[in-house]
């Protein structure tokens, strides 16, 4: 039972805000024109508008990088934090304020390099939040250095002779972590599909991880051209429990596969494809345990309980003067 009285609902119709997309817009984005981040921002703002999410119930958390400027552009709560530490901050927020919708915007460097340890454990902890990995396969903010997801042979300021190693595959990595509950992939140049994926991720209970393949027109202007210009190189994953095959999508993407999001083995195979970019929901498990649900305490952290518990904890290590020992420990 959750206590709730009727009075606040009496005039609900009159105090309801009608949020427009502009209500979620903060300052003008400082991303380069043509940047894929703009498409992601527009999709997220559309989602907030369509779901009529109150501004004060939203928080966007990011680390460092181009994509991590995201919170500045949403007129909601935000936390532009330390490099690689977006996820632990987001987890802390969710633990303390489970009533907030938590979004994380992180880049391929922020998430897959310096923040990789946090990334894996956040997937396993499966706390209820929507994580968007803006993956342009390059460091843009610092002007073109190779990132962990840069493909082999990519020439950059740090790899002038081409990247030596195969890029890290964020989907395959995520699908290998225990207790993973939602993994999807989208491309920024298919806005309707991107919106659909973000929307389904938002409604998923648990950590929903979306890798968004994103263009960097400044430093890798033609990097994804072959995929953009040839729709055959995208593999549209459809399923009645995932993204259904609508006529529009089917017309745009002739390469389709019916993929059941509960099939993790096939999801891992799809994640490992190299010739095509699979887009859609690869894996979803509503039954995965959420960390905040199993560690939650019924005790309310009032100043009094905090003080009492702290005192009790400190008392364990207190060296009592002999005269006070009895009373003090009692």
């Amino acid at each position: 039972m959750v206590m709730s009285v009727s009075a606040p609902r009496c005039l609900q119709w009159s105090d309801r805000e009608d949020y427009e997309l502009e209500d979620y817009e903060a300052e003008v984005p400082r991303w380069c024109t043509g940047c894929g981040d703009l498409a992601i921002l527009a999709a997220v703002q559309r989602l907030c508008r369509d779901e009529q999410l109150p501004l004060e119930n939203l928080v966007f958390v990011s680390g460092i990088g181009c994509s991590s400027r995201f919170p500045h552009y949403m007129k909601t709560y935000g936390f532009h934090g330390l490099h690689g530490r977006a996820l632990p901050v987001a987890e802390g927020i969710k633990l303390k304020r489970p009533d907030l919708h938590v979004f994380v915007n992180t880049g391929d460097g922020d998430c897959c390099s310096i923040g990789a340890a946090h990334w894996l454990h956040a997937i396993r902890y499966n706390m209820d939040m929507t994580v968007m990995l803006h993956d342009n396969e390059i460091y843009g903010l610092t002007k073109k250095q190779a990132s962990p997801t840069s493909p082999k042979g990519l020439k950059s300021n740090t790899t002038p002779r081409g990247a030596y190693l195969e890029g890290l595959n964020p989907l395959a990595t995520t699908l290998g972590v225990a207790n993973v509950s939602f993994v999807a992939q989208a491309v920024d140049w298919a806005p309707a599909h991107l919106y659909e994926i973000i929307s389904q991720a938002f409604h998923h209970k648990g950590l929903s991880f979306i890798r968004i393949v994103q263009r960097c027109p400044e430093f890798l202007p033609a990097h994804f051209d072959s995929f953009m210009q040839d729709p055959e190189r995208l593999l549209l994953l459809t399923h009645e429990d995932g993204i259904p095959a609508t006529p529009d999508l089917s017309r745009a993407y002739p390469q389709r596969e019916v993929h059941d999001p509960s099939d993790i083995n096939r999801a891992r195979e799809i994640a490992s494809l190299t010739d095509r970019i699979p887009i859609g929901i690869l894996y979803r498990n509503e039954a995965a345990v959420c960390y905040e649900d199993v560690v939650g305490s019924d005790t309310l952290s009032t100043p009094k309980t905090v003080r009492t518990n702290l005192e009790a904890e400190l008392d364990k290590f207190t060296v009592w003067p002999p005269s006070e020992e009895r009373e003090g420990r009692g």
């Binding site: 024109t33 527009a42 140049w189 806005p191 609508t246 006529p247 529009d248 999508l249």
Partner: peptide, 29 residues
């Protein structure tokens, strides 16, 4: 694999008129 219902193609526009395929726009400014 069930084929999705075929929707009629959008009506033909005059080749002289400029237009944008709005649903595909990525908001890139």
């Amino acid at each position: 694999i069930p084929a999705p219902a075929v929707e009629p193609e959008p009506e033909e526009r005059s080749a002289d008129e400029p237009y944008i395929e709005t649903p595909r726009c990525t908001t890139c400014d």
